[in-house]
Design a protein around this nucleic acid. Structure first.
Lengths: 232, 232
DNA sequence: CCGTATCCGGGGGGATACTG
DNA sequence: CAGTATCCCCCCGGATACGG
């Protein structure tokens, strides 16, 4: 936030002084979601320039919201973790997200969603416990998108969660998911479902029938998926 | 928020697109607190220029958060009231305020607080039911401030709440409150109390002993006053 | 892999004055 | 009372390239 500040003793204004600058809330959301490394944060906030990301992280550190920790000496590697003050921002993030899910029109944004970000969000919330306890490879193919963006979801070790590949990892594919990005995004945000998209031919599943049949379940949804939209 | 938007389907980002622009959260807070008229809003957000206030109100109206209603024809008079979507922003405001009260350092802002804003906030939360049921006049005198800013709190009709005057209303004064602006602000935000400020000679009360003795009670505090500060 | 450095443009918004 | 109108500066932040 710029220098001629709000200058109000109201705690709402004081907090806004910190949280109101561009990208800050979105970044904190990604931190709350669990990303700690610089490049992981970048994946969660892909349209933010690294320069600005670095700047915001410094600000958050300065404000006692984030702690920057050295995790390895060579090569020098850091992680950014929320302090107690930062952790309590979860309540703020949740309140904002719940309101957004309920009241903000989604359609304009669905039009040009980001496949990389969607995969990144899906990966995080995967219910690996509901997937077969072996290596599982799911290949997402988004129509009308430059073929360049391959999207493989690779579950090797249930303990470690899934990996994301943008190039063919070479494994046999258990399930091909072919759909438009808009539908997949709508499913993840809870305003559409796998069965409905399949029945309306917006989603095509080819492969292992078990993995296919349970997709709505193992595909963890957005934390706000349960909230009904009210926007006119 | 500017045009190159976040472009994220995450509801936190979508909501931030609306709420993230400068002054918006602070303005919504004032709307939640009950102000509906343009000039009342100005008093609650004194450092915001009328041009920007007008612009933000239009944006909020466009986004379905505020409704602009004509209340009188001559002179043309409008009021701004929160829509259902706007009312539900109260949860967001509260979450932000609670976090701010708990974790944001207050001291820098206490230094140059705004007496007009403080009076405006105090007036709103006055516990008129705990004041004598007759006309009560309290004259606040802030030391080290240009004498120009007189601050009379006038309770005429308990039904209608109190009035604020910047010029001597001419009534007999029931209580003189003499203090530095910093102490009074600290009291209102709950990090100080009337008795303590009095005992430390930062607050001087002269006048009706009943009104004086019950000041800590009839002076309604900030909605966030109960939350303990944790900031280092 | 984890950032930093630099450039540069657009526009947000602060200040001030004014009007129906 | 309820806003408009105008000016103009500053700085945010987007883009790109580069270093440890």
């Amino acid at each position: 936030m710029s220098h001629p500040s709000y200058n109000q003793f109201c705690p709402v204004a004081m907090a806004s002084e910190i949280l109101g600058s561009r990208w800050t809330i979105v970044l904190v959301r990604e931190l709350c979601a669990g990303s700690t490394r610089f490049n992981d944060l970048r994946r969660g906030v892909p349209r933010m320039s690294p320069a600005l990301l670095s700047k915001r992280l410094k600000e958050l550190e300065h404000q006692g919201i984030v702690e920057r920790r050295l995790v390895r000496k060579i090569p020098e590697t850091f992680e950014y973790v929320l302090t107690p003050a930062g952790c309590e921002l979860r309540d703020v993030i949740m309140a904002i997200g719940e309101w957004g899910q309920k009241w903000v029109q989604t359609s304009p944004i669905l039009e040009n969603a980001d496949p990389g970000l969607l995969m990144w969000d899906m990966r995080r919330n995967l219910r690996v416990d509901l997937m077969p306890q072996r290596r599982v490879v799911v290949h997402f193919i988004y129509e009308n998108l430059p073929e360049a963006s391959g999207n493989w979801l690779v579950l090797t070790d249930p303990e470690k969660g899934a990996d994301l590949c943008s190039a063919d990892p070479g494994f046999d594919v258990d399930l091909f998911v072919r759909c438009d990005l808009k539908s997949m995004t709508a499913i993840w945000t809870g305003i559409d479902t796998v069965p409905r998209a399949v029945s309306e031919d917006r989603l095509l599943l080819v492969g292992d029938s078990d993995v296919s049949a349970s997709m709505q379940d193992w595909l963890g949804l957005s934390p706000f998926a349960g909230i009904e939209k009210q926007a006119s």
